[in-house]
Amino acid sequence: MKLEEIKPGQEVMILNLSGKEDILEKIKAMGLRKGRKIALIQKVGRNLLLKVDNSRIVISREIAKNIEVQ
């Protein structure tokens, strides 16, 4: 399942990040990595608000499309 498809309140684990964009390296460094548990707090407009460990991270749907979760 793609991260883009899950519902607010759901908690999932990251299986894989694909894509070649530079921005992926940045979001990996922000804590969105394989095997990490994340929760979707909210979807607003083109963006998703995620909770990763103790931080809150906003990413756009375009990026969420490349993230496989379970």
Partner: peptide
């Protein structure tokens, strides 16, 4: 630009 941002506490 992509929207990637951290919301601080």
């Amino acid at each position: 630009y992509h929207f990637v941002m951290e919301l601080p506490p």
